[in-house]
Design a protein around this nucleic acid. Structure first.
Length: 339
DNA sequence: AATTCGGGGGT
DNA sequence: ACCCCAGAATT
Protein backbone atom coordinates (compact mmCIF):
# COMPACT_ATOMS: atom_id res chain seq x y z
CA UNK A 1 0.00 0.00 0.00
CA UNK A 2 2.86 2.36 0.88
CA UNK A 3 4.47 1.94 -2.53
CA UNK A 4 1.18 2.51 -4.32
CA UNK A 5 0.60 5.70 -2.36
CA UNK A 6 4.16 6.96 -2.98
CA UNK A 7 4.01 6.27 -6.69
CA UNK A 8 0.59 7.83 -7.23
CA UNK A 9 1.63 10.82 -5.15
CA UNK A 10 4.73 11.54 -7.23
CA UNK A 11 2.82 11.10 -10.49
CA UNK A 12 0.13 13.46 -9.24
CA UNK A 13 2.77 15.99 -8.13
CA UNK A 14 4.48 16.03 -11.50
CA UNK A 15 1.20 16.85 -13.22
CA UNK A 16 -0.34 19.22 -10.68
CA UNK A 17 2.39 21.12 -8.85
CA UNK A 18 2.20 24.88 -8.77
CA UNK A 19 5.14 26.80 -10.10
CA UNK A 20 6.43 28.49 -6.96
CA UNK A 21 9.70 30.47 -6.93
CA UNK A 22 11.26 28.60 -3.98
CA UNK A 23 10.84 25.35 -5.90
CA UNK A 24 13.22 26.45 -8.63
CA UNK A 25 16.24 26.57 -6.35
CA UNK A 26 18.36 24.47 -4.04
CA UNK A 27 19.87 27.54 -2.41
CA UNK A 28 19.40 26.84 1.31
CA UNK A 29 19.10 30.55 2.08
CA UNK A 30 16.16 30.98 -0.30
CA UNK A 31 14.54 27.80 0.97
CA UNK A 32 15.00 28.79 4.61
CA UNK A 33 13.58 32.25 3.88
CA UNK A 34 10.53 30.79 2.17
CA UNK A 35 9.92 28.27 4.94
CA UNK A 36 10.04 30.86 7.69
CA UNK A 37 7.73 33.18 5.78
CA UNK A 38 5.29 30.35 5.14
CA UNK A 39 5.02 29.22 8.76
CA UNK A 40 1.29 29.42 9.58
CA UNK A 41 0.89 31.51 6.46
CA UNK A 42 -0.82 30.76 3.16
CA UNK A 43 1.25 30.66 0.00
CA UNK A 44 -0.79 33.47 -1.54
CA UNK A 45 -0.13 35.72 1.43
CA UNK A 46 3.56 34.85 1.80
CA UNK A 47 4.55 34.99 -1.85
CA UNK A 48 4.84 38.79 -2.23
CA UNK A 49 6.86 38.96 1.00
CA UNK A 50 9.23 36.28 -0.29
CA UNK A 51 9.78 38.19 -3.51
CA UNK A 52 10.40 41.43 -1.60
CA UNK A 53 12.93 39.74 0.69
CA UNK A 54 15.01 38.02 -1.99
CA UNK A 55 15.10 41.23 -4.01
CA UNK A 56 16.16 43.37 -1.05
CA UNK A 57 18.45 40.71 0.45
CA UNK A 58 19.78 38.47 -2.37
CA UNK A 59 22.24 36.75 -0.03
CA UNK A 60 22.28 35.83 3.62
CA UNK A 61 25.06 38.39 4.09
CA UNK A 62 22.74 41.12 2.83
CA UNK A 63 20.11 40.08 5.35
CA UNK A 64 22.69 39.86 8.12
CA UNK A 65 23.93 43.40 7.65
CA UNK A 66 20.48 44.99 7.39
CA UNK A 67 19.21 47.00 10.40
CA UNK A 68 16.59 45.08 12.35
CA UNK A 69 14.05 47.92 11.99
CA UNK A 70 14.33 47.59 8.21
CA UNK A 71 13.72 43.84 8.35
CA UNK A 72 10.70 44.37 10.61
CA UNK A 73 9.33 46.99 8.24
CA UNK A 74 9.59 44.57 5.32
CA UNK A 75 7.81 41.97 7.45
CA UNK A 76 5.03 44.39 8.50
CA UNK A 77 1.58 42.84 8.11
CA UNK A 78 2.72 39.20 8.03
CA UNK A 79 2.32 38.61 11.75
CA UNK A 80 4.24 36.37 14.16
CA UNK A 81 6.96 39.00 14.25
CA UNK A 82 9.36 36.84 16.24
CA UNK A 83 9.88 34.97 12.97
CA UNK A 84 11.52 38.06 11.48
CA UNK A 85 13.50 38.73 14.65
CA UNK A 86 14.79 35.14 14.81
CA UNK A 87 15.47 35.03 11.10
CA UNK A 88 17.57 38.17 11.28
CA UNK A 89 19.39 36.83 14.33
CA UNK A 90 20.14 33.57 12.53
CA UNK A 91 21.36 35.37 9.41
CA UNK A 92 23.84 37.29 11.56
CA UNK A 93 24.81 34.13 13.41
CA UNK A 94 25.49 32.16 10.24
CA UNK A 95 27.35 35.04 8.61
CA UNK A 96 29.52 36.01 11.56
CA UNK A 97 30.03 32.72 13.40
CA UNK A 98 29.48 30.13 10.70
CA UNK A 99 31.38 31.78 7.81
CA UNK A 100 28.13 32.26 5.89
CA UNK A 101 27.81 28.52 5.41
CA UNK A 102 24.39 26.99 5.91
CA UNK A 103 24.55 23.80 8.01
CA UNK A 104 23.70 20.73 5.95
CA UNK A 105 22.40 18.19 8.46
CA UNK A 106 18.94 18.07 9.96
CA UNK A 107 20.29 18.15 13.53
CA UNK A 108 22.44 21.22 12.93
CA UNK A 109 19.71 23.05 11.04
CA UNK A 110 17.21 22.41 13.81
CA UNK A 111 19.51 24.14 16.30
CA UNK A 112 19.05 27.46 14.50
CA UNK A 113 16.81 30.00 16.20
CA UNK A 114 13.35 30.08 14.65
CA UNK A 115 13.81 26.67 13.05
CA UNK A 116 11.77 23.82 14.50
CA UNK A 117 11.06 20.23 13.52
CA UNK A 118 9.10 21.05 10.39
CA UNK A 119 11.36 23.77 8.99
CA UNK A 120 14.55 21.79 9.68
CA UNK A 121 13.12 18.79 7.81
CA UNK A 122 12.00 21.00 4.94
CA UNK A 123 15.41 22.65 4.50
CA UNK A 124 17.33 19.39 4.96
CA UNK A 125 15.25 17.59 2.34
CA UNK A 126 14.67 20.39 -0.19
CA UNK A 127 18.16 21.85 -0.17
CA UNK A 128 20.27 18.80 0.71
CA UNK A 129 18.00 15.91 -0.26
CA UNK A 130 18.23 14.37 3.19
CA UNK A 131 15.66 11.66 4.00
CA UNK A 132 13.68 13.41 6.74
CA UNK A 133 9.89 13.64 6.59
CA UNK A 134 8.10 16.97 6.93
CA UNK A 135 4.90 17.25 8.95
CA UNK A 136 2.87 20.41 8.52
CA UNK A 137 -0.88 21.04 8.56
CA UNK A 138 -1.25 19.74 5.01
CA UNK A 139 0.62 16.52 5.72
CA UNK A 140 -1.37 15.93 8.89
CA UNK A 141 -4.63 16.26 7.00
CA UNK A 142 -3.55 13.88 4.25
CA UNK A 143 -2.32 11.29 6.75
CA UNK A 144 -5.35 11.60 9.03
CA UNK A 145 -7.73 10.96 6.15
CA UNK A 146 -5.73 8.35 4.29
CA UNK A 147 -5.02 6.27 7.41
CA UNK A 148 -8.02 7.24 9.54
CA UNK A 149 -5.95 8.81 12.34
CA UNK A 150 -8.45 10.10 14.89
CA UNK A 151 -6.14 11.67 17.48
CA UNK A 152 -5.90 15.46 17.87
CA UNK A 153 -3.43 16.98 15.42
CA UNK A 154 -1.67 18.55 18.41
CA UNK A 155 -0.29 15.03 18.96
CA UNK A 156 2.57 15.63 16.56
CA UNK A 157 4.48 12.43 17.42
CA UNK A 158 1.76 10.18 16.02
CA UNK A 159 1.79 12.04 12.72
CA UNK A 160 5.56 12.27 12.57
CA UNK A 161 5.93 8.50 12.96
CA UNK A 162 3.47 7.86 10.15
CA UNK A 163 5.16 10.43 7.93
CA UNK A 164 8.54 8.84 8.66
CA UNK A 165 7.19 5.40 7.72
CA UNK A 166 5.75 6.73 4.48
CA UNK A 167 8.81 8.73 3.36
CA UNK A 168 10.22 7.93 -0.06
CA UNK A 169 13.94 7.43 0.57
CA UNK A 170 14.74 7.57 -3.13
CA UNK A 171 13.20 11.00 -3.58
CA UNK A 172 12.71 12.67 -0.20
CA UNK A 173 12.53 16.22 -1.55
CA UNK A 174 9.89 15.48 -4.16
CA UNK A 175 7.96 13.25 -1.78
CA UNK A 176 7.82 15.90 0.95
CA UNK A 177 6.76 18.65 -1.41
CA UNK A 178 4.22 16.34 -3.00
CA UNK A 179 2.65 15.52 0.38
CA UNK A 180 2.19 19.20 1.18
CA UNK A 181 1.03 20.10 -2.29
CA UNK A 182 -1.48 17.27 -2.29
CA UNK A 183 -2.91 18.60 0.97
CA UNK A 184 -2.94 22.18 -0.27
CA UNK A 185 -4.46 21.48 -3.68
CA UNK A 186 -6.42 18.20 -3.60
CA UNK A 187 -7.03 17.10 0.00
CA UNK A 188 -8.19 20.54 1.13
CA UNK A 189 -9.77 21.19 4.55
CA UNK A 190 -13.30 22.01 3.43
CA UNK A 191 -15.27 20.14 0.79
CA UNK A 192 -12.43 18.33 -1.00
CA UNK A 193 -13.28 17.02 -4.45
CA UNK A 194 -12.95 13.35 -3.57
CA UNK A 195 -14.69 12.33 -6.80
CA UNK A 196 -11.59 13.39 -8.73
CA UNK A 197 -9.06 12.02 -6.21
CA UNK A 198 -6.51 9.45 -7.30
CA UNK A 199 -6.31 8.03 -3.75
CA UNK A 200 -10.05 7.40 -3.48
CA UNK A 201 -9.86 3.59 -3.47
CA UNK A 202 -7.18 3.47 -0.76
CA UNK A 203 -8.41 6.34 1.45
CA UNK A 204 -9.78 5.29 4.85
CA UNK A 205 -11.76 8.49 5.35
CA UNK A 206 -13.36 8.32 1.92
CA UNK A 207 -14.31 4.66 2.23
CA UNK A 208 -15.77 5.22 5.71
CA UNK A 209 -17.40 8.57 5.02
CA UNK A 210 -15.16 10.37 7.49
CA UNK A 211 -13.64 13.00 5.23
CA UNK A 212 -15.63 15.72 6.94
CA UNK A 213 -14.59 14.52 10.40
CA UNK A 214 -10.84 14.21 9.85
CA UNK A 215 -8.44 15.48 10.88
CA UNK A 216 -9.46 16.04 14.52
CA UNK A 217 -8.60 19.46 15.84
CA UNK A 218 -9.42 20.20 19.47
CA UNK A 219 -10.29 23.87 19.75
CA UNK A 220 -10.34 26.23 22.67
CA UNK A 221 -13.89 26.87 23.88
CA UNK A 222 -13.80 30.65 23.93
CA UNK A 223 -11.80 33.65 22.85
CA UNK A 224 -11.44 36.48 25.40
CA UNK A 225 -12.10 40.08 24.39
CA UNK A 226 -10.12 43.13 25.44
CA UNK A 227 -10.64 46.86 25.06
CA UNK A 228 -7.91 49.43 24.55
CA UNK A 229 -7.53 53.09 23.61
CA UNK A 230 -4.98 54.18 21.03
CA UNK A 231 -3.91 57.82 20.82
CA UNK A 232 -2.87 59.65 17.67
CA UNK A 233 -1.21 62.68 19.22
CA UNK A 234 -0.21 65.43 16.83
CA UNK A 235 1.65 68.65 17.64
CA UNK A 236 1.89 72.03 15.94
CA UNK A 237 4.94 70.89 13.94
CA UNK A 238 3.05 68.09 12.18
CA UNK A 239 4.71 65.41 14.26
CA UNK A 240 3.12 62.47 16.06
CA UNK A 241 4.16 60.49 19.09
CA UNK A 242 5.47 56.95 18.68
CA UNK A 243 7.78 54.55 20.50
CA UNK A 244 9.34 51.15 20.06
CA UNK A 245 7.70 48.24 21.87
CA UNK A 246 9.73 45.92 24.13
CA UNK A 247 11.61 43.04 22.51
CA UNK A 248 9.36 40.45 24.09
CA UNK A 249 5.67 39.73 24.06
CA UNK A 250 3.10 40.77 21.52
CA UNK A 251 4.29 42.93 18.61
CA UNK A 252 7.88 42.73 19.88
CA UNK A 253 10.17 45.48 18.51
CA UNK A 254 7.43 47.05 16.43
CA UNK A 255 6.50 50.72 16.85
CA UNK A 256 3.28 51.90 18.45
CA UNK A 257 1.37 55.06 19.22
CA UNK A 258 0.45 55.64 22.89
CA UNK A 259 -2.17 53.13 23.99
CA UNK A 260 -3.66 51.27 26.92
CA UNK A 261 -3.11 47.71 25.68
CA UNK A 262 -1.86 45.83 28.78
CA UNK A 263 -0.66 49.15 30.29
CA UNK A 264 -1.82 52.44 31.74
CA UNK A 265 -1.46 55.56 29.64
CA UNK A 266 1.71 57.33 30.76
CA UNK A 267 0.78 60.75 29.37
CA UNK A 268 -1.42 63.65 30.40
CA UNK A 269 -3.76 64.78 27.67
CA UNK A 270 -6.04 67.80 27.30
CA UNK A 271 -9.77 67.45 27.84
CA UNK A 272 -10.69 67.87 24.21
CA UNK A 273 -9.91 65.56 21.33
CA UNK A 274 -10.55 66.26 17.64
CA UNK A 275 -12.19 62.99 16.64
CA UNK A 276 -12.45 59.36 17.56
CA UNK A 277 -13.10 56.07 15.83
CA UNK A 278 -13.44 52.35 16.39
CA UNK A 279 -11.52 49.35 15.11
CA UNK A 280 -11.84 45.63 15.81
CA UNK A 281 -8.70 43.53 15.59
CA UNK A 282 -8.96 39.76 15.73
CA UNK A 283 -6.01 37.70 16.96
CA UNK A 284 -5.78 33.94 17.15
CA UNK A 285 -6.29 33.95 20.90
CA UNK A 286 -8.29 37.12 21.66
CA UNK A 287 -10.32 39.92 20.16
CA UNK A 288 -9.22 43.50 20.63
CA UNK A 289 -11.70 46.37 20.54
CA UNK A 290 -9.84 49.56 19.80
CA UNK A 291 -11.12 53.07 20.30
CA UNK A 292 -8.74 55.55 18.75
CA UNK A 293 -8.61 59.23 19.66
CA UNK A 294 -7.02 62.03 17.68
CA UNK A 295 -5.51 64.82 19.79
CA UNK A 296 -3.76 67.99 18.73
CA UNK A 297 -1.53 69.56 21.34
CA UNK A 298 1.29 72.02 21.80
CA UNK A 299 4.65 70.29 21.96
CA UNK A 300 5.60 72.22 25.11
CA UNK A 301 2.46 71.15 26.96
CA UNK A 302 3.45 67.52 27.25
CA UNK A 303 6.12 65.81 29.32
CA UNK A 304 7.51 62.73 27.59
CA UNK A 305 8.73 59.61 29.27
CA UNK A 306 12.09 58.89 27.71
CA UNK A 307 11.24 56.29 25.09
CA UNK A 308 8.58 58.29 23.26
CA UNK A 309 9.66 60.29 20.26
CA UNK A 310 8.10 62.84 17.95
CA UNK A 311 8.19 61.84 14.28
CA UNK A 312 7.25 63.91 11.25
CA UNK A 313 3.92 62.71 9.89
CA UNK A 314 5.51 62.40 6.46
CA UNK A 315 8.18 60.06 7.86
CA UNK A 316 5.98 57.72 9.85
CA UNK A 317 6.11 55.13 7.08
CA UNK A 318 9.75 54.43 7.88
CA UNK A 319 8.72 52.47 10.95
CA UNK A 320 7.15 49.02 11.27
CA UNK A 321 3.77 48.98 12.99
CA UNK A 322 1.23 46.35 13.99
CA UNK A 323 -1.61 46.32 11.49
CA UNK A 324 -4.18 48.18 13.63
CA UNK A 325 -1.69 50.96 14.42
CA UNK A 326 -0.87 51.32 10.73
CA UNK A 327 -4.61 51.50 10.00
CA UNK A 328 -5.15 54.28 12.54
CA UNK A 329 -2.21 56.31 11.25
CA UNK A 330 -3.26 55.89 7.63
CA UNK A 331 -6.89 56.72 8.36
CA UNK A 332 -6.13 59.95 10.19
CA UNK A 333 -3.25 61.05 7.97
CA UNK A 334 -5.42 60.70 4.90
CA UNK A 335 -7.83 63.26 6.33
CA UNK A 336 -5.08 65.86 6.62
CA UNK A 337 -6.50 69.28 5.85
CA UNK A 338 -9.74 68.67 7.68
CA UNK A 339 -8.28 69.94 10.91
C1' DA B 1 1.32 19.44 27.76
C1' DA B 2 -0.54 23.95 27.33
C1' DT B 3 -0.06 28.73 26.11
C1' DT B 4 1.59 32.54 23.45
C1' DC B 5 2.44 34.65 19.23
C1' DG B 6 -0.80 37.76 13.71
C1' DG B 7 -3.01 38.31 10.07
C1' DG B 8 -5.70 37.29 6.11
C1' DG B 9 -8.75 34.81 3.08
C1' DG B 10 -12.22 31.41 2.38
C1' DT B 11 -16.82 29.69 3.43
C1' DA C 1 -18.89 33.45 12.95
C1' DC C 2 -15.70 29.93 12.23
C1' DC C 3 -11.78 27.65 10.01
C1' DC C 4 -6.96 27.20 9.19
C1' DC C 5 -2.72 28.24 7.00
C1' DA C 6 4.81 24.90 4.39
C1' DG C 7 4.88 26.25 13.27
C1' DA C 8 8.22 27.73 17.02
C1' DA C 9 9.32 29.31 21.58
C1' DT C 10 8.12 29.62 26.12
C1' DT C 11 6.02 28.19 30.36
Amino acid sequence: MKEIFQQRLLNWFEQNKRNLPWRNTQNPYFIWLSEVILQQTRVAQGLPYYLKFIEKYPTIQDLAKAPEDEVMKLWQGLGYYSRAKNMHYTAKYLTEIHQGQFPTSFEEIKQLKGVGQYTAAAIASFAFNQPVAVVDGNVQRVLARWLGINTDIKNKKIFQSHADALLNFEKPAAHNQAMMEFGAVQCVPQNPDCASCIMQDICYAYKNDLVRELPIRVKKPFKPEKKAYFYYIENEEHQILIRKRPNKGIWANLYEIPNTLNTELDLTLPAQYLEKGYLKHIFTHFILHITWLHYKIQKQDIVLSQNYEWVEIDKTDDFAYPVPVQKIITTIRNKKGLF
